[in-house]
């Protein structure tokens, strides 16, 4: 899996009505990479992730997974999503299920794991995010940071090849941001391939192996964080970063 291209996005365009939100997006994700996508609000970051996860449909362009075009055929999409997970800003834990059930529902229903195996997998990943003691809790009994850690564990239970994160810490109180970023940092160290939309510049700089800066629907810059954060080539990147540092 290392060094193999997992996902490639080619000439992707997306419009809502006559509002072009994504323009000629071209990039690929290699196994083991941790890519952070940064950019100002409205630049199309969420839309890009949602297109990759098939929650949105591009106007033109293609997405390839292991060299195969990702088509909108429901059964194929389901299999693809089982491998390419997504963590949302608003957690999206199932409100009608306990923490444990949240982590077992898909492994049982989608992967058809037997009960005991689904259970031990859930416990393993809940432990890794420090949420195993809370297996009996319902989502609305948890703090934001706890919910997001459970959501991450739930995605991990599928043994994803690629995990997408859409601003996983933006809905959190400041004191809870750290606990989630730490979990993600630990995940990065395990070699999991991740594509992370974030406003946490420090995290992007320290953890990502590559950083993409999006501006007005375009990929304005795509580089290693060492260069992108200290010596950006595109003036728009410089402007964005300076606003961040001063703000």
């Amino acid at each position: 899996m290392e060094n193999e291209i997992l996902l490639s996005v080619e000439q992707l365009n997306k419009s809502f009505g006559d509002h072009e939100v994504l323009k000629q997006i071209d990039f690929s994700v290699t196994g083991g990479e941790v890519i952070c996508i940064v950019g100002s609000s409205g630049s199309g970051k969420s839309t890009l992730l949602r297109c990759i996860n098939r929650l949105e449909h591009q106007t033109s362009g293609k997405i390839y997974y292991h060299g195969q075009e990702v088509r909108d055929i429901q059964s194929e999409v389901n299999k693809y999503r089982a491998k390419v997970g997504m963590v949302f800003q608003s957690f999206n834990l199932f409100n009608n299920m306990s923490v444990l059930k949240n982590c077992m529902a898909a492994t049982q229903k989608v992967l058809h794991l037997p009960q005991e195996e689904a259970f031990s997998r859930a416990i393993k990943h809940l432990k890794s995010v420090g949420m195993a003691p809370y297996i009996n809790a319902m989502p609305d009994q948890l703090s934001g940071g706890q919910k997001q850690r459970v959501a991450i564990a739930r995605s991990l239970c599928m043994n994803p090849e690629l995990l997408l994160f859409d601003e996983p810490t933006s809905a959190l109180d400041p004191e809870m941001v750290g606990e989630v970023l730490n979990v993600m940092k630990a995940l990065a160290e395990t070699g999991l391939t991740m594509l992370i939309v974030t406003h946490e510049m420090g995290f992007a700089r320290d953890v990502s192996t590559r950083t993409i800066f999006m501006d007005k629907g375009y990929i304005a810059e795509d580089d290693v964080p060492e260069r992108l954060f200290t010596n950006p080539q595109n003036p728009r990147t410089r402007e964005f970063l300076s606003r961040f540092i001063s703000g």
């Binding site: 999503r81 529902a105 898909a106």
Partner: peptide, 14 residues
């Protein structure tokens, strides 16, 4: 909330 459905779909549920 639409997020409930998206959460389920993102795990490969039909």
């Amino acid at each position: 909330d639409a997020g409930q459905k998206e959460g389920a779909l993102s795990l490969g549920m039909s």
